[in-house]
Computed example of a mutant assay.
Amino acid sequence: MPETLLLRTFLAVAAELSFQKAAQALHVAPSTVTSRIMALEEELGATLFTRSSRRVVLTEAGQRLVPHALQVTELAARTRRAVSGEEEASEVRLRVSETLGTFCLPPILRRFREACPATRVHLAVTSREGTASDLRRGRIDAALLLGEPFSAPGITVEALGREPLVVYTAPDGPLADSQDVGPDDLAGVPMVLTRHAWSVRSLMERVVGGDGMDMPGRVECASAVIVRGCVMAGLGVSVAPHFFVARQARRGLVRLLTWRGEPLSATILLARDRTRAASEPLKTALRMVREFFAQRGQSFQSGQPGQPVRPVSGRVYEKRR
Score class of each variant (00 low, 15 high):
Ala69Asn: 06
Ala69Lys: 05
Ala69Gly: 07
Leu70Trp: 03
Gln71Lys: 14
Gln71Arg: 14
Gln71Cys: 07
Thr73Arg: 04
Glu74Gly: 11
Leu75Ile: 10
Leu75Thr: 13
Ala77Cys: 05
Arg80Ser: 10
Arg81Glu: 14
Ser84Thr: 08
Glu86Asn: 04
Glu87Phe: 02
Glu87Leu: 09
Glu87Lys: 10
Glu88Asn: 05
Glu91Gln: 09
Arg93Asp: 00
Arg93Phe: 00
Arg95His: 07
Val96Arg: 05
Val96Gly: 06
Ser97Phe: 09
Thr99Phe: 09
Leu100Thr: 11
Gly101Met: 08
Gly101Ala: 10
Gly101Ile: 09
Gly101Asn: 07
Thr102Gln: 15
Thr102Ala: 15
Phe103Asp: 11
Cys104Glu: 06
Leu105Pro: 04
Leu105Phe: 06
Pro106Phe: 02
Pro106Ile: 02
Pro106Val: 07
Pro107Glu: 11
Pro107His: 07
Ile108Asn: 03
Ile108Arg: 01
Arg110Trp: 07
Arg111Gln: 14
Arg111Cys: 10
Phe112Ala: 01
Arg113Asn: 06
Arg113Pro: 04
Arg113Asp: 04
Arg113Ile: 04
Glu114Thr: 09
Glu114Trp: 03
Glu114Phe: 04
Ala115Glu: 14
Ala115Asp: 09
Cys116Ile: 00
Cys116Asn: 03
Pro117Phe: 02
Ala118Cys: 03
Thr119Gly: 02
Thr119Ser: 03
Val121Ile: 15
His122Asp: 08
His122Ile: 15
His122Leu: 15
Ala124Asp: 08
Val125Trp: 12
Thr126Ala: 12
Thr126Arg: 11
Gly130Pro: 01
Thr131Ala: 09
Thr131Phe: 03
Ala132Val: 01
Ser133Gln: 15
Ser133Lys: 15
Asp134Cys: 09
Arg137Asn: 11
Arg139Lys: 12
Asp141Lys: 06
Asp141Ala: 07
Asp141Arg: 07
Ala142Cys: 10
Leu144Val: 06
Glu148Met: 05
Glu148Ile: 09
Pro149Gly: 01
Pro149Lys: 01
Ser151Lys: 08
Pro153Asp: 00
Pro153Val: 00
Pro153His: 00
Pro153Cys: 00
Ile155Cys: 02
Val157Gly: 05
Glu158His: 06
Glu158Thr: 15
Glu158Arg: 13
Ala159Thr: 08
Leu160Tyr: 12
Leu160Arg: 14
Gly161His: 02
Arg162Gly: 11
Arg162Ala: 15
Glu163Leu: 13
Pro164Leu: 06
Leu165Thr: 07
Leu165Lys: 08
Val166Phe: 10
Val167Ile: 14
Thr169Tyr: 12
Ala170Arg: 09
Ala170Met: 11
Ala170Asn: 08
Asp172Leu: 13
Asp172Glu: 14
Pro174Met: 04
Pro174Asp: 04
Leu175Lys: 03
Leu175Thr: 01
Asp177Thr: 11
Asp180Pro: 00
Asp184Met: 12
Val189Phe: 05
Pro190Asn: 11
Met191Phe: 13
Met191Trp: 11
Leu193Met: 15
Thr194Trp: 08
